[in-house]
């Protein structure tokens, strides 16, 4: 019975976890090297050359990495401030409000940001009534802008409660309050405790979820789709645009970008799993 269940588990794992990923990558590779596809006739490296020489694609990768790092840095820094000031209640009705943004899907969060920060948005209306701005055109571009401000703000809005709760959990489990009292008794200042104990301990303990969150932001789709601009686009938006265009010459390039993105994620995942193993060894 157990053997049968084991064989079934192996088969399902191969069929539902490994096969889809492998099949997708094989198809993308074959398409990108010209073996399959409408306009492809024989093996070619042309699509890879086109992509690797394209400034648009490099810009897209750098833009995605920039959005990922900036969103993460801002949300982690604010979450640290919350934990340092201990402005969160672990229980009681107040704590429910910290969870609220976790209930918002990316699509809705992007829609909210657009309604709140666009030229005709809620903030612009308040600025107009307060005579700070003269109307829609006078309000700064905070969505669909060059620096991805709207995208970053939305990611921070979604990530912030997650990091606050994550850090708070580790603050309690690592007994940092006791450590703080001890360090203050031994003559250190609050800022010394924060810089030399609190931040290093929390960063070390939460490195794995932070890395995972960075990978998620890198591949985010709905938020840059609604709040991004035509160029540069984040990787997911660019790949989907290339693959769903009527220009058949764009399709192999879309698959090349998808493979490059997958390689980048696999590399990040390798470091993530390594760091996880290291922290398991440390705990043991």
């Amino acid at each position: 019975m157990k053997n049968r269940s084991n064989i079934l588990s192996h088969s399902f794992f191969a069929l539902l976890v490994i096969a889809p990923f492998a099949a997708g990558i094989i198809y993308a590779l074959l398409y990108s090297f010209g073996f399959i596809g409408e306009l492809n006739q024989e093996f070619t490296l042309q699509h890879w050359k086109n992509v690797l020489q394209s400034a648009e694609i490099f810009k897209s990768f750098f833009f995605s990495i920039y959005i990922g790092i900036t969103s993460l840095l801002i949300s982690v820094s604010i979450a640290f401030l919350f934990v340092m000031k201990r402005k969160i209640n672990s229980s009681g009705w107040m704590s429910y409000f910290f969870y609220l943004p976790l209930a918002i899907p990316a699509m809705v969060a992007a829609f909210f940001t657009f309604q709140f920060l666009s030229g005709a948005g809620f903030l612009s209306r308040i600025f107009f009534q307060l005579h700070i701005s003269n109307g829609i055109d006078d309000f700064p571009d905070l969505v669909n802008d060059t620096f991805g401000i709207g995208i970053i703000i939305t990611h921070v809005m979604l990530a912030l409660p997650f990091f606050i709760l994550l850090f708070r959990n580790y603050y309690q489990s690592e007994k940092l309050e006791t450590l703080k009292e001890l360090s203050l008794t031994l003559g250190s200042t609050s800022s010394q405790f924060n810089l030399k104990i609190l931040i290093p301990v929390l960063l070390n303990k939460t490195f794995a979820p932070l890395a995972l969150y960075f990978i998620f932001i890198l591949g985010s789709y709905e938020i840059p789709l609604l709040l991004g601009q035509q160029s540069p686009q984040m990787i997911s938006v660019l790949v989907n645009r290339k693959l769903s265009r009527y220009n058949l010459l764009d399709i192999p390039q879309g698959y090349v970008i998808a493979i490059l993105y997958t390689l980048l994620v696999m590399l990040l995942l390798y470091f993530f799993i390594k760091s996880k193993d290291k922290s398991h060894v440390q705990q043991a």
Partner: peptide, 22 residues
Amino acid sequence: IAFAYLPFVLSPVIFASVLNFY
């Protein structure tokens, strides 16, 4: 576990795009 992480962390829209043919 590493294999299990891959489809989970990949961008769903890119994952769907490369699987769409099948």
